[in-house]
Amino acid sequence: MPLLALIVTGCAKLVGVLVRWLTQLHLFLYGILPALLPPDRLRTLMRRYYDLSYEQAGTRIPLTAYSWSLETWEERILTQHLSPPATILVLGAGLGRESLALAQRGYRVLALDVARGGLIVGARRAASLHLPVTFIQADFLTLPVQAASVAYVLLSGVMYSAVPGRAQRQAWLRSLRTCLTPGGTLVLNYVIAREPDTALTRMSRRCTRAILSWPGSNPTYQDGDTCTNDHFMHVFRDEHELRTEITEAGATLIELHWPDGYAVLS
């Protein structure tokens, strides 16, 4: 028995080493992926990611497992910058967390998402609570909304960082003028760099720089672009980068709260 226990212990340690190595390799490969794929391919991967994510919503995972309330920073935004009754467009609505909470507070809500599975769950829950939320399946970058029809736009979660390419994010911000009423307000969330610089991230950056010299690499790649399980994300390195990107797009910053990762624009 002592010999068997020794063998089992050794195997367990070996498996642990292999798992850690494979995890590092997994992170490295996804880290260099945005340098290889153009923005349209990155968006396709993300769409598949969300389709798969919402397949389990409401079926394998009970709805009671999800939070249906606003986060602290969202409550703060409502108090300081928004006021009902008004029409608010939620982009990247998912299961409808923000949309339902906003409807309960007296807003007329248009909830838009590319993944049908999440919208079905949200629509069923809205119906059970008798909340007037309109759910729309569409790509939020195309903005299939009538001109000057909404007073507020909320970009849900980290969706601003999920737009591949600085130029495309800026073009999207400019296009919002068509659907917002004069003086309308946009609230967006973004991802900031919180992880420490490691040997793995430094190696990933070196490999990325080499890849960018190859023909056919992604010409829109920026430092801070990464992927996790097929989900693209641009991680903003500092507040100046974000401020410059927004102001160059012609938007006016009303508030930028860097630590909590949100900005209010007009």
Rank of each mutant, 00 (worst) to 15 (best):
residue 205 R to E: 10
residue 150 V to D: 02
residue 127 A to R: 14
residue 19 V to P: 01
residue 203 M to D: 11
residue 106 G to Q: 05
residue 13 K to C: 13
residue 184 G to Y: 01
residue 55 E to S: 14
residue 225 D to E: 13
residue 173 L to I: 01
residue 229 N to W: 13
residue 139 D to P: 01
residue 238 D to G: 06
residue 266 S to F: 11
residue 246 I to M: 04
residue 81 H to L: 06
residue 256 L to H: 08
residue 167 A to E: 14
residue 73 W to N: 14
residue 4 L to K: 15
residue 186 L to Y: 07
residue 47 R to M: 11
residue 117 G to H: 05
residue 13 K to Q: 12
residue 106 G to A: 04
residue 90 V to L: 06
residue 226 T to P: 02
residue 250 G to S: 04
residue 201 T to V: 09
residue 64 T to F: 09
residue 75 E to Q: 15
residue 18 L to M: 11
residue 85 P to T: 07
residue 136 I to N: 00
residue 1 M to I: 14
residue 109 V to N: 00
residue 256 L to Q: 10
residue 23 T to P: 08
residue 34 P to M: 02
residue 23 T to K: 13
residue 31 G to S: 02
residue 265 L to V: 01
residue 159 M to R: 14
residue 190 Y to F: 13
residue 125 R to D: 00
residue 34 P to E: 00
residue 148 A to C: 09
residue 163 V to Y: 05
residue 53 S to R: 15
residue 196 P to D: 03
residue 29 L to P: 03
residue 11 C to T: 15
residue 147 A to C: 07
residue 227 C to Y: 03
residue 209 R to S: 12
residue 127 A to V: 06
residue 262 Y to H: 05
residue 212 L to H: 13
residue 221 Y to E: 00
residue 225 D to S: 11
residue 204 S to T: 15
residue 115 A to Y: 03
residue 52 L to G: 15
residue 158 V to A: 12
residue 163 V to W: 05
residue 69 S to T: 14
residue 42 L to D: 03
residue 241 E to M: 06
residue 177 R to G: 15
residue 237 R to T: 12
residue 256 L to T: 06
residue 83 S to V: 11
residue 132 P to V: 06
residue 212 L to V: 08
residue 180 L to Q: 06
residue 66 Y to L: 05
residue 98 E to R: 14
residue 218 N to G: 06
residue 113 D to V: 08
residue 99 S to G: 05
residue 191 V to F: 11
residue 23 T to W: 11
residue 158 V to I: 15
residue 70 L to P: 03
residue 235 V to K: 11
residue 107 Y to Q: 04
residue 200 L to C: 05
residue 208 T to L: 06
residue 74 E to Y: 06
residue 6 L to K: 15
residue 164 P to K: 04
residue 106 G to I: 04
residue 77 I to R: 02
residue 120 I to P: 06
residue 94 G to H: 05
residue 228 T to H: 14
residue 36 L to E: 01
residue 206 R to P: 02
residue 257 H to Q: 09
residue 230 D to T: 14
residue 149 S to K: 02
residue 207 C to Y: 09
residue 40 D to V: 15
residue 137 Q to Y: 07
residue 215 P to E: 01
residue 202 R to M: 00
residue 111 A to V: 10
residue 87 T to F: 09
residue 33 L to D: 04
residue 28 F to I: 02
residue 205 R to S: 12
residue 41 R to H: 13
residue 198 T to E: 05
residue 121 V to E: 01
residue 44 T to K: 15
residue 254 I to A: 08
residue 195 E to P: 11
residue 80 Q to K: 11
residue 29 L to A: 10
residue 205 R to W: 13
residue 117 G to L: 03
residue 51 D to P: 02
residue 44 T to P: 10
residue 189 N to M: 09
residue 27 L to C: 10
residue 118 G to T: 00
residue 29 L to F: 09
residue 231 H to N: 14
residue 171 A to P: 03
residue 228 T to Q: 13
residue 53 S to A: 15
residue 189 N to D: 11
residue 53 S to T: 15
residue 220 T to M: 10
residue 265 L to T: 01
residue 188 L to W: 02
residue 59 T to S: 13
residue 68 W to L: 08
residue 108 R to C: 08
residue 117 G to N: 06
residue 122 G to D: 04
residue 1 M to A: 12
residue 246 I to A: 03
residue 85 P to M: 00
residue 101 A to L: 08
residue 237 R to F: 10
residue 11 C to E: 14
residue 32 I to R: 00
residue 190 Y to G: 02
residue 102 L to H: 08
residue 97 R to A: 00
residue 204 S to I: 15
residue 89 L to I: 10
residue 199 A to T: 15
residue 112 L to G: 02
residue 8 V to S: 12
residue 62 P to V: 03
residue 179 C to W: 09
residue 106 G to R: 07
